[in-house]
Design a protein around this nucleic acid. Structure first.
Lengths: 185, 185
DNA sequence: CTGAATTTTCAGAAATTTCTGAAAGTATAA
DNA sequence: TTATACTTTCAGAAATTTCTGAAAATTCAG
């Protein structure tokens, strides 16, 4: 299993970024390798390619599966597990976002919601107000995120390409047909 | 410096989430404490409140300043540094997003761009195609993100509240006035 | 200036995370 | 079945990150 210079650079970079992205170096490098590889790789290919132990590959594979970024493919007559990316770059990115939201946002929304329930009605503390602001922000984000996740990729891409242009179009339409949606913002 | 039970729970939670958010426990707890505190806190307040060393507070303060999440405030006739949040919850969240994008996305876009330049025109490998896809995705994201950052908070909030509704409005307008923007998606 | 109050630094200790590799577990071809 | 080809597990080693606390540096009132 020989890699091109470009692939190697990319794999090493993914290893360096891994900890910032929420996983360890091996997981990062392994994802890069699998994504760039034309053909499915087995655990030995990977252990050899990345110079890590067989056990480490097994653990990293579990981690990547828990993120739903790879799946295993088996050929009849071959006992090896072949690891393949779970979709296009776009789909993998979406999956990473979804998983990170689940791990980085949901627990906090849950805790903040719970705390807000505990406050007495008479409490007018700054702390409570800040928690309420955070709760509102996290709920707004959560609903928006769910919506975005359910959009067709092409629609989403088109929307992103518009960028702030969306705001302009929206202002136009709301000028033509003023509605409820704007007033509470 | 006495904290309420709710504040304590919130601070502890921020400490637990910190590593997932890209900083260490002390930084997370300290941010929580500062955000919830009505009045500015000095380093000793914080060291005592969180049960950590004075040196650790100094390092965490530097880190929070590098994220532009806090700033120091000084009272004339008092030599202490008072640490205060650098804006509302909304502004802090925006700042975290901006900083994370800078640390988690920009370096990769830079590396991928560089690698794409290295490929020979004749290269039709899967690896190259994947890198190109990743480059396109990161550029799309980057431009969208810049646009969003420059929107007025109220416009952005209104847009997020619409969620996927934006897609519907957009389809409507493009049906009325079919343009260039959609065809390449 | 001087010196007391404060912040910063950083070497090494402590805590945490990651990795290895041998042993145990599992699946399947024969 | 059984033998074998593989995967998983996990105790402890290695690497990395975080934290402490004392010493150095800085700041500023007098």
């Amino acid at each position: 299993m020989q890699m091109s210079a470009e692939t190697e650079t990319f794999v090493v970079h993914f290893g360096e970024m891994a900890s910032r992205w929420g996983f360890n170096r091996t997981v990062g490098q392994m994802l890069a390798l699998i994504v760039l590889s034309e053909k499915p790789l087995n655990a030995d290919d990977i252990a050899q390619g990345l110079n890590v132990s067989r056990g480490n590959v097994s653990m990293a594979a579990k981690e990547l599966q828990s993120w739903r970024l790879i799946r295993v493919h088996r050929e009849p007559g071959d006992r090896k597990d072949y690891l393949v990316a779970n979709g296009s770059i776009w789909e993998l990115a979406q999956q990473v976002m979804a998983e990170r939201k689940k791990r980085e946002v949901d627990p906090t929304l849950s805790v903040v919601r719970g705390l807000l329930m505990d406050f007495d009605d008479s409490d007018h503390s700054h702390a409570r107000a800040q928690m309420q602001e955070m709760n509102d922000l996290l709920e707004l984000f959560t609903h928006w995120f769910d919506d975005v996740q359910n959009m067709k990729p092409d629609h989403l891409k088109a929307l992103m390409k518009m960028g702030a242009g969306v705001g302009r179009v929206l202002e136009m339409t709301s000028r033509l047909k003023p509605g409820k949606k704007d007033e509470e913002a």
